[in-house]
Write a protein that binds this DNA or RNA. Structure first.
Lengths: 209, 209
DNA sequence: GTCTATACCCGGATAGAC
DNA sequence: GTCTATCCGGGTATAGAC
């Protein structure tokens, strides 16, 4: 249509060769940040990177496979954030509160990543990498909880599960706007979630059914 | 294309006149049940009902307005379910456990409705009906919690908020497959959420920040 | 490993007839 | 209040050239 259509046409056409896979993952993250998971399309990601819509199919079987790759990277960031805020010397309850806070903050500060993991509707049985990438989260909670429920593995499992559900619930409702918008809302939700984690620890005797 | 294309062509073409709005809401719910919120389209809903794609625009300004109508109906069912499982004579902690259970069961048994409310990405400022339709949920939790935190309104607000987040977290993780699939998973998630609500009540002293 | 080109299907939305 | 017809845009995916 146009004369000499450069392969670098478009503002973001800085991609050259050899890293298309990674470049697509990056572009997808930005795309989801702007238009949400629903608004993502393989076609637009291709345009952003500066390749044609056919190129991605050398690296991903289909659209969902790219989304799954994004979700795996998202979980790496998630795990780093949940793990990073704590030091092993802190008492376990304090570490769990910090992890809960980090969980909620991740949802707010990395909303596109959070949504890709939890709202993209990816078939987990099709992407076992996804399940594996989530396991460290369980492990982190369990490790701290085990110091509280010494010896009682069943009690530890139960407590860890409700602590994760507590963090997740606060994160989800925060993104849904239940706590308002802005950084005040994030702080409020994170604080409340952290306090709730302490309440769950204190009241953990009620978890035995 | 075909001779005498009846206005009732198609398997589901039982719609006649005068209730297109309601018929579209019904069809949308079924559609979301089959293809998820993401897979919904106004066009297919129209086909199901047996009208052309133009007809809905007499009743809804656009696609999102139909989704919002579905969400409002969903919240009515939600409220009925959360309220319905309790009797006022039960002690408040028991009612809160039942409400929590109902919250989780609603997510599982009415998954399309739950997803429409929480995952459709509707702009709540554009649909004030949505916010209003959710208020009874808060009111139900608060009413039971007030019997526990007699007099202390701030404590009641905090406890109600974490109880709702607890229920929501379990519901969301259940739909995400964290508790497995099937009715066993639903029961497990609901039981765990109910026990966690008791733990939160027992440990509520930690909620004061 | 990427491009060109294309086939194919779908959705949202509107104008104008009835 | 619904239909017919249509415009317009967009996405997925593939074949074949380079």
């Amino acid at each position: 249509m146009f004369a000499t259509p450069s392969k670098r046409s478009g503002k973001a056409g800085r991609y050259h060769h050899g890293e298309l896979r990674a470049a697509l993952v990056d572009a997808t993250i930005k795309l989801i940040a702007e238009h949400g998971v629903r608004g993502f399309s393989l076609a637009e990601a291709s345009r952003r990177v500066g390749v044609t819509v056919a190129a991605p199919y050398r690296h991903f079987a289909d659209r969902d496979e790219l989304l799954a790759a994004v979700a795996v990277r998202a979980l790496e960031v998630f795990v780093a954030m949940v793990a990073g805020d704590t030091t092993d010397t802190d008492p376990p309850a304090q570490r769990l509160a910090a992890m809960t806070r980090a969980y909620v903050r991740f949802a707010a500060e990395q909303r596109p990543l959070f949504e890709t993991v939890f709202h993209a509707g990816l078939d987990k049985s099709r992407y076992p990498d996804l399940k594996r990438a989530y396991e460290p989260v369980d492990a982190l909670f369990l490790s701290a909880v085990n110091e509280i429920c010494e010896g009682d593995a069943a009690a530890a499992d139960a407590l860890a599960a409700v602590l994760e559900a507590n963090a997740h619930g606060h994160a989800a409702l925060l993104l849904d706007g239940e706590y308002g918008e802005g950084s005040d809302a994030v702080r409020a939700a994170a604080d409340q979630a952290a306090r709730a984690s302490q309440a769950l620890i204190d009241g953990r005797n009620a978890l035995h059914g």
